[in-house]
Computed example of a mutant assay.
Amino acid sequence: MYDVDPTTPGLCAYWKFNEGGGDIAKDYTENGNDAKSYADALWPSGIEVTQKNK
């Protein structure tokens, strides 16, 4: 829900879930751990998560 540095040591994956469609959530680290939905993913529109300290 908040900003994460994708180069943080020990971070296995970082998914933002901001694709808006499809069944893959991209991993923003260099590890390539994309997440795949095993059912039809629902991507509601108009939802924003407030970021702390911004």
Results as ranks from 00 to 15, higher is better:
residue 12 C to M: 14
residue 7 T to L: 12
residue 2 Y to M: 11
residue 20 G to N: 09
residue 3 D to R: 09
residue 47 I to R: 09
residue 53 N to L: 14
residue 4 V to M: 08
residue 11 L to N: 00
residue 49 V to K: 13
residue 27 D to F: 03
residue 44 P to H: 10
residue 39 A to N: 13
residue 54 K to N: 14
residue 48 E to H: 13
residue 38 Y to I: 12
residue 8 T to G: 06
residue 4 V to G: 01
residue 49 V to M: 09
residue 44 P to L: 10
residue 52 K to W: 13
residue 14 Y to H: 06
residue 51 Q to M: 12
residue 17 F to N: 09
residue 1 M to W: 05
residue 18 N to F: 01
residue 46 G to V: 09
residue 26 K to N: 03
residue 20 G to C: 10
residue 54 K to A: 11
residue 19 E to M: 04
residue 19 E to Y: 05
residue 23 D to S: 15
residue 3 D to Q: 07
residue 36 K to L: 06
residue 24 I to S: 10
residue 13 A to R: 01
residue 29 T to E: 06
residue 2 Y to I: 09
residue 13 A to Q: 01
residue 8 T to H: 10
residue 23 D to G: 06
residue 50 T to N: 10
residue 1 M to F: 06
residue 38 Y to H: 11
residue 9 P to G: 08
residue 45 S to P: 02
residue 37 S to K: 06
residue 51 Q to I: 13
residue 48 E to R: 14
residue 30 E to W: 09
residue 54 K to M: 12
residue 18 N to D: 15
residue 53 N to M: 13
residue 32 G to L: 06
residue 17 F to S: 07
residue 43 W to D: 12
residue 11 L to W: 01
residue 39 A to E: 12
residue 36 K to C: 02
residue 45 S to Q: 15
residue 42 L to H: 14
residue 14 Y to M: 06
residue 29 T to V: 08
residue 18 N to Y: 04
residue 5 D to V: 03
residue 22 G to I: 06
residue 6 P to N: 08
residue 28 Y to N: 02
residue 48 E to Y: 12
residue 14 Y to L: 15
residue 23 D to W: 11
residue 35 A to E: 03
residue 46 G to N: 14
residue 52 K to S: 13
residue 49 V to A: 11
residue 6 P to C: 04
residue 46 G to I: 09
residue 15 W to L: 04
residue 6 P to D: 04
residue 28 Y to I: 00
residue 44 P to D: 12
residue 4 V to F: 02
residue 22 G to R: 07
residue 13 A to G: 06
residue 17 F to I: 07
residue 41 A to E: 02
residue 46 G to F: 09
residue 46 G to R: 08
residue 52 K to T: 13
residue 31 N to P: 02
residue 18 N to V: 03
residue 16 K to L: 05
residue 4 V to W: 02
residue 6 P to Y: 03
residue 5 D to A: 07
residue 33 N to H: 11
residue 1 M to G: 11
residue 6 P to T: 07
residue 13 A to I: 02
residue 50 T to K: 15
residue 49 V to D: 04
residue 27 D to V: 03
residue 11 L to R: 01
residue 31 N to V: 03
residue 37 S to V: 04
residue 22 G to E: 06
residue 52 K to Q: 11
residue 52 K to E: 11
residue 37 S to G: 12
residue 7 T to I: 07
residue 11 L to M: 04
residue 1 M to P: 03
residue 32 G to K: 05
